[in-house]
């Protein structure tokens, strides 16, 4: 494998490690506040209760928003670097970007799409909360819509991205 590809894989590994590390920090701080340590049965029990309890979804949307935000940013940094190889040598650029067509990388890209979708749609929801003065229930419905759109668009887009690898 060419050195430049190894370098990119190392960079991507660093990005993924950073995301996992950041997620751990977010969840650890969550553990100190109301949401974190109850991912187990207690967490499910809370979701099972009717009504306002489901406001807990907002808390997890907040954590997810931060984690996806960090992930997108970190990948963007790497991506700027890998694209700028074109300035050094188009051949090097082509060599490196051959990786993007591989199956594992396509799966990664599909994940990236889901992260971008969630972060964008959820960000629009947060704007809407202020603009439309959305209360807890309206905001929760909007969040469900965000989640649904993320899943639907993510699945469709993901299929388009991943399909060539198996064609």
């Amino acid at each position: 494998m060419p050195a430049i590809q190894l370098l990119f894989i190392a960079g991507l590994t660093a990005v993924l490690a950073g995301v996992v590390g950041f997620a751990a920090v977010v969840l650890a701080s969550a553990a100190r506040s109301g949401g974190g340590p109850h991912v187990t049965s207690g967490f499910l029990r809370r979701f099972a209760r009717p009504g306002r309890e489901r406001a807990e979804l907002h808390r997890w949307a907040f954590y997810l928003h931060r984690i996806t935000g960090f992930a997108i940013f970190a990948f963007l940094c790497l991506h700027i670097l890998d694209v700028s190889t074109y300035a050094l040598s188009p051949a090097l650029y082509d060599e490196l970007h051959g990786l993007y067509a591989t199956a594992p990388m396509r799966v990664f890209e599909a994940g990236l799409l889901v992260a971008i979708l969630f972060h964008t749609l959820n960000g629009l929801r947060l704007v809407a909360v202020d603009v439309a003065d959305m209360g807890i229930d309206a905001s929760r419905r909007a969040l469900v819509a965000v989640a649904a759109l993320t899943v639907v668009l993510g699945a469709a887009g993901g299929a388009v991205i991943v399909a060539p690898a198996f064609a």
């Binding site: 808390r59 907040f62 209360g135």
Partner: peptide, 19 residues
């Protein structure tokens, strides 16, 4: 405020701090 709504969800007096 990060729109978590934890406040309005738990207030035992039914107030809406988020609002």
């Amino acid at each position: 405020c990060r729109y978590i709504y934890g406040c309005s969800a738990v207030c035992p007096k039914g107030l809406d701090p988020a609002g």
